[in-house]
Every structure is written in C-alpha cells, then in structure tokens.
Design a protein around this nucleic acid. Structure first.
Lengths: 98, 98
DNA sequence: ATTAATTTGTCTATTTTTGACAAACGTATT
DNA sequence: AATACGTTTGTCAAAAATAGACAAATTAAT
C-alpha cells in the first residue's frame, strides 16, 4: 500500500507536471521524488502541507494517508497484523476518552 | 500504552521472579529488562517465544501485543491517529482477501 | 544503616535511514 | 539508429536512530 505516493503521482500527472517541476518545489531531486511516489521512501512531514496546498488537498487527510502508509509498512507481512491494529485502536480510543 | 511490558512484569511478579532471574534467561542485564517492562525499550523478536514459553502464554497473542505497542507508539500524539489506523486496517483487509 | 531490587543516565557501537549523484532504462521523435 | 526526455535504479557516504553495557542513583525492605 502506498496511498500517499499514489495520490501525489496522480495529482501531479493530472496537472501534467514533471517530476522535475514538483521536485524543485520540494527541494529534492527527481530520483527522490520518484521513490516517494512509488512508496520506496517517505516524504518529510514538513512537505505534506506544501503538497496539500499545491494540489488543493485537505492537509489532515493527506497527513492521515501518510501516517497510514507507515502503519501499514510496520505490520504488513505479519500474521497478527490485524489483531495488533485492533489492540492499538482500542487503546487509542480509551486514551482519547480520558 | 505498554501492554507487552505490563504483561511480562505482571507474570514475572506473579512467579516472584526478580529482574535478574528473568534477565539472565533473556541474556540481558537487569537495566535493559527494566526498561523493556516499562516500555522504554522494545524486546527483540526472538525473545517473544522464550517469554511465551516461560510464562505459558500464547505466542501469537504475545506477539500481537508487541506489535500493537509499536503501532501505538507510531501514531500516539497524532490527531489523525485513529483515521490512519482505519485506513491501514481497511487496506490490510483488502490484501488479505485477494 | 545496610543490603537488595530496581531505575535512570551516560556513553559507545551498531544499525538504519537519508539523500546526492550517476548510470540505466524506457519511450518517443527525427 | 541516434538523440532527447522523463523516469527509475543503484551506490555510497553522511546523518540519525537504536541497542545495550556499565555505573550511579533511587527506592524499599530488614
């Protein structure tokens, strides 16, 4: 799963931007951006806002995709992945209430 | 949240073991085990099975606690934590089906 | 106060991640 | 086929994160 990168790529292509155009705005080289779009690397937190503004996306939503990708990476390939997520989620809810 | 460490500690105390007894079995010093039980450090994967056997716990369950703690650490303090978990979970389910 | 158990802090070694750069690849155009 | 352009891949050094040994401090018990 690479929802973040996929979205950025689709938005970029939608606007007919090249890697080099966007990478310049993010102050990185095209190779890096390419890797980010394909989920091989992760963009820095600070870049999320920039990207959201650029593509008129909801910043919180974009951030949640970014975070979800990282969670996914952590648990994918694990047999107990779903169970672990459920446990974490439950705990999170408890903490939010109190 | 530190479900893994809490469980180990409670099991250890239940059996009136000292840190030094358990730490010897895990081939680490007491300081390290102390940190693990309090969630300051994470135990190595290989240790999970040892611990499960020692305390007669379900290895898969213990592993899922261990993983959940790591997921939790990743998202705690994030406003979008729950949303991110939901997204990851959804994706996980899709992947499991196919 | 002494001893025992646990916790905390510090410091080095190891591992992991980052990102720049160059080279390779694919595709279209001439 | 050769060139040009966009993208991807590989490599490598620097930087950051983590691990874990050890010592010292803290807490608790006798």
């Amino acid at each position: 799963m690479n929802k973040f990168g996929d979205l950025i790529r689709s938005k970029r292509e939608e606007q007919e931007m090249l890697l080099r155009h966007l990478s310049a705005q993010l102050d990185m080289d095209t190779a890096m951006l390419s890797k980010i779009e394909r989920g091989e690397k992760t963009v820095k937190r600070e870049h999320i806002e920039t990207l959201a503004k650029l593509f008129k996306l909801d910043c919180n939503y974009l951030f949640s995709l970014w975070l979800a990708d990282q969670v996914f990476q952590l648990v994918e390939n694990e047999k107990q992945a779903l169970q672990a997520l459920k446990i974490a989620e439950k705990e999170l809810k408890i903490n939010n209430e109190t």
